[in-house]
C-alpha cells in the first residue's frame, strides 16, 4: 500500500477551527446571514477546486458538497432529488468519478477536483459532446435528473469511449429518471460515443 503524496504531513485536521467573519466568502446574501450565525454551527474556510477554479468557501463540518455547491457557490445545476443517495440528481464528478454530492462532505474534496454540470461547456460556451448528443436526442423530459445523467455519461465515456448499450445502462444505473426518459438518454450516450448518427 503506497502513501498518497498529496496528503499533508499534518497529523490530523480537526474540523472545528473557527474562521472569523473577515474570512467569509460567497454571495452577498450569505455573508449577511453568516454574521448572525449562532456559535453552535462553526464554519471553516477551505479551498476547493470546482470546475477548474479554486473557490474559497466557509463550510460546516457536516456540510454536504451539494449544499455548498447550491447555496454557497451558486452552482444550482446540481439538483437535490432526495438528498439521500437514492436518485442521482446530485451527481457530480470528483476526479472524474461519479459521486452523489448530497452524500459526501465538502470537507472530503479539499484535495480533489470537482466537476459539476456548469463545468462541462468550453470557455467559449460550446457544449460538451455529451451535452450536444443529449440535446440532439432530446434526452431530458422534465430535466431534473439530466445534469446527473450527463455527468454519469461523461464519466463513462472517459473510461470507456465506445460502450455497448448494456454497459451504458449499467453505468447510468445510479441515476433515477422519474419521467422514464431512459431510452432517450441511452440514445444520447450512444450518439455521444459516435455509435449513432
Amino acid at each position: 500500500m503506497s502513501v498518497n503524496p498529496r496528503l499533508t504531513r499534518r497529523r490530523f485536521i480537526k474540523g472545528v477551527i473557527y474562521s472569523g467573519a473577515a474570512a467569509m466568502s460567497g454571495a452577498g446574501v450569505y455573508l449577511a446571514n453568516a454574521q448572525s450565525r449562532p456559535a453552535a454551527a462553526v464554519e471553516r474556510l477551505i479551498s476547493i477546486n470546482v470546475n477548474g477554479r479554486t473557490r474559497r468557501v466557509d463550510v460546516l463540518p457536516q456540510e454536504t458538497l451539494a449544499h455548498t455547491l447550491r447555496y454557497k457557490l451558486e452552482l444550482t445545476g446540481t439538483k437535490l432529488g432526495c438528498n439521500r443517495g437514492e436518485c442521482g440528481a446530485c451527481t457530480v464528478l470528483v476526479d472524474d468519478v461519479t459521486h452523489y454530492a448530497c452524500s459526501m462532505l465538502t470537507h472530503s474534496v479539499k484535495q480533489r477536483s470537482v466537476t459539476t454540470i456548469e463545468g462541462l461547456q468550453s470557455a467559449d460556451g460550446q457544449l460538451h459532446v455529451v451535452q450536444q448528443a443529449f440535446l440532439d436526442e432530446l434526452g431530458p423530459q422534465c430535466g431534473f435528473c439530466t445534469p446527473g445523467q450527463v455527468l454519469a455519461t461523461v464519466a463513462l465515456l472517459k473510461s470507456n469511449p465506445r460502450p455497448t448499450r448494456d454497459q451504458a445502462r449499467d453505468a447510468l444505473a445510479g441515476n433515477l429518471c422519474r419521467c422514464g426518459a431512459y431510452d432517450h438518454y441511452l440514445n444520447g450516450v450512444m450518439r455521444a460515443s459516435g455509435q449513432l448518427s
Partner: peptide, 20 residues
Amino acid sequence: DVMPDIELYQPVQVEDALDL
C-alpha cells in the same frame, strides 16, 4: 434531511484515528 451540528476529524494516520 440536514445533518445536525457535529465535529469532524480527518486523521491521516491509523494511530491518530485509533486515539480518537
